[in-house]
Design a protein around this nucleic acid. Structure first.
Lengths: 198, 198
DNA sequence: GAAAGTTTATGATTCAAATCATAATGTGTC
DNA sequence: GACACATTATGATTTGAATCATAAACTTTC
């Protein structure tokens, strides 16, 4: 996260997107640095038969879509507002200037990428290893520990629908529903009024 | 890739690992920056029933295992020498000093992480979407374009065994064998004396 | 150059998640 | 509060990759 003021100083603009709006599409060239001010943005892919895969969900203070600003690649996924959202946009060239003149910010940016890489490394190995229950627990534990910084059993109220969990893990809704029930029976999670707690 | 001389200047040491040696293990704390001088190193996970997943294979000039040096996380995977290998190791603190005093190197490091993130984003979505043939093509195309920088049909000789392709894609050997044959029939790849060309 | 070990190959069977179908429950909206 | 819509739920069936089994082709080692 980069301070809003600093971003505005370098020419960043706050833009409002209504729920469902697309900020950029898979395959496009990256032009801007994006950071959520309010609301939530997801990055996702659709495969050939329309099935969605959610790469990540980003909330207030989190940036997304930075890798293509550094490496010479196109966006690997789409970005879409999950709710009405405000997002700071800063043009690539100004963003790079900002980093060049603020080494501490650059280092924190590197740290952010490193964390995201850590998450992806876990997910890719986990998803490849099959076993739905495992996959689900892993993503819940990741969100709990690394995103919400929570500890202690059932302290994490999962604010995701079963469908979203499915799209994050590459499973199908029905499978997630059955797997979460099985996990509840095993005492790994709790379900209170349809919400999952971990 | 950071120049060998620079790494040595900052106190890096060249260490030789025999084939099969483990450089670090999943869950350990990261102490060093690693860069391959000669040979090949893979990073991998083993799931509960012993199935391997290869996160990446790193050859001369490539670094690996950097994310935990930046973010406060443990290694998400093991590192193992695929052949007798020489590796430069530089202690974390000296590595961070190096970056602080060489902003250009830091930026290239960020670029490396960004590229790796791009690859993981593709793989995680691809793996989750099932369809073995797709998964295989995707990893081959990635290796061809982004690692070996090749263009033109069948210009890329894949120097991986079917088992390694399986471990990179989360499939099983038999599935890879059948899928590559199907892909050959469709003209997507060529197989000459058992080697895959893409 | 024979033996041992890898890698590729191929058929038969199993199995678990996807798919299909249908409904109950909950939430939001006019 | 009635209607539309989203989410959760559950059972039956299909399907395709994993698994199991076995062997051929190739490579390495002594």
């Amino acid at each position: 996260m980069i301070s809003t003021n600093l971003l505005l100083d370098f020419g960043g603009k706050i833009i409002t997107y209504p729920k469902g709006a697309q900020l950029f599409r898979e395959g496009e060239t990256a032009l801007n640095y994006y950071q959520v001010v309010s609301g939530e943005v997801k990055m996702n892919n659709y495969n050939l038969d329309g099935k969605e895969f959610i790469q990540g969900i980003f909330a207030s203070g989190q940036s997304f879509g930075e890798p293509p600003l550094f490496a010479d690649v196109k966006y690997p996924a789409n970005a879409e507002a999950l709710s009405d959202s405000e997002v700071i946009q800063l043009h690539k060239s100004q963003f790079l200037e900002l980093l060049a003149s603020h080494p501490d910010v650059h280092l924190r940016m590197t740290e952010t990428l490193a964390k995201r890489l850590f998450y992806k490394a876990i997910m890719v190995s986990e998803i490849s290893s099959q076993e739905p229950e495992h996959r689900i627990l892993r993503i819940l534990d990741y969100l709990k520990k690394h995103v919400h910084k929570l500890e202690g059993p059932f302290s994490f109220k999962v604010d995701l629908t079963r469908q979203q969990i499915a799209d994050l893990t590459g499973l199908r809704v029905e499978t997630v529903i059955r797997a979460t029930k099985a996990l509840e029976k095993k005492g790994e999670i709790k379900i209170k009024s349809r919400k999952v707690y971990r």
